[in-house]
Computed example of a mutant assay.
Amino acid sequence: MISELKKYEFHKCKDLLYEQGHLEAKAIVHGVNTGRIFVDDTDSPTSGLIWLGNNDGFFFIGNERNEAFNSKLNYFIDTVIIPEARKVGLTWFEGIGNHSKWDETIKKVFENRNLGSWNQRVYTLQRKDYKVNLELTTEVEYNIVKISETLFKNSDKSIKNIDFLRSKILEFWSSPKRFLNDGIGYCVVYENMIVNVCFSSFVVDNVHCIDIETLEEHQGKKLAQKVALTFVENCLADNLVLYWDCMESNKPSIAVAEKIGLRNVFNYKGYDFKFK
């Protein structure tokens, strides 16, 4: 039987995490970011499934050869995950193994589901490795602003599209306060509109995962590079480690990561199938 853990029980899964694995999974287990965890045994779990709180996928953790868990996954997904996923508008299941041994298990378990796959890259950067010194200029109308409580509240209503910032932060964090306590971020403001955000999406200890988005009509102006560089330099000044996870097919994102000096540390596969 696969059962859901209470948030105060998430610590039981710490030993199931692969040390060199994904920051997103660690952030949920450590209780920093929002998410849900389903396991084979709520008292002493050996395998589990993490549902990221931003609905951006599922991570398989622990023992990939646990037949008691694996044999129940399809039924569990059909009867529990899919009905709840549809309530939040999801039409696809996206699964990732916390370590590469899960790949074969995922392919075997879901062999009858028209399984697709894609490749991801993970980059990191530590202060001792930072050598890039870029001078990026943007049009004077674009201003980089640190994300603060004052900006988030927008009491003077100076930002016309403040919901863009708020919705991005709350995709990953349980509250603005939790983000402001544990994360950092910057945004680009143009004519009283936030047109780019760059912030800590997942955090574990001193490692910060970067999420960055530029509104379509302002893309192509190197805003992502500029704000990411600001984010990186401020993080490194505080001895934080940067973590950047992006699809291999996302060439612009990879270009930004490599341009500002992040180093590719590991790659992995993600798998997906459409809900019936």
Rank of each mutant, 00 (worst) to 15 (best):
K7N: 12
F10T: 10
H11M: 07
D15Y: 06
D15K: 14
L17E: 00
L23A: 10
K26H: 09
K26F: 07
I28P: 00
R36K: 15
T42C: 11
P45A: 04
S47C: 07
L49S: 02
I50M: 07
L52Q: 03
G53N: 08
N54G: 10
N54H: 15
F58C: 05
F59V: 05
N63E: 13
L73D: 01
Y75S: 15
F76H: 12
I77M: 09
I77H: 02
T79W: 05
T79G: 02
V80A: 04
V80S: 06
I82Q: 03
P83W: 08
A85Y: 13
G89Q: 10
T91K: 15
I96S: 02
G97P: 01
S100H: 05
D103M: 00
I106Y: 01
K108H: 09
K108G: 00
W118G: 06
Q120S: 13
Y123P: 06
T124R: 09
L125N: 02
L125A: 05
K128A: 11
D129G: 03
L134H: 11
T137M: 14
T138F: 10
Y142G: 12
I144Y: 05
K146W: 06
E149K: 15
T150S: 13
F152C: 07
K153C: 05
K153T: 07
D156E: 14
K157I: 05
K160D: 12
F164M: 08
K168E: 11
F172T: 00
R178E: 14
F179L: 02
D182L: 15
D182P: 01
G183K: 08
I184K: 12
Y186W: 13
V188P: 00
V189E: 14
C198H: 00
S201T: 02
F202K: 10
F202C: 11
V203L: 12
D205V: 04
C209G: 13
E213H: 14
T214N: 10
T214P: 09
H218K: 09
Q219L: 07
L223K: 08
L223P: 04
A224T: 10
K226C: 08
T230R: 15
E233W: 05
A237W: 07
N239L: 08
L240S: 02
Y243E: 06
Y243H: 13
D245P: 03
D245T: 03
D245V: 04
K251V: 12
P252A: 06
S253H: 00
S253E: 00
I254N: 04
A255Y: 10
N264I: 06
F266E: 03
F266A: 01
N267M: 02
G270T: 00
Y271W: 01
K274Q: 11
K276Y: 04
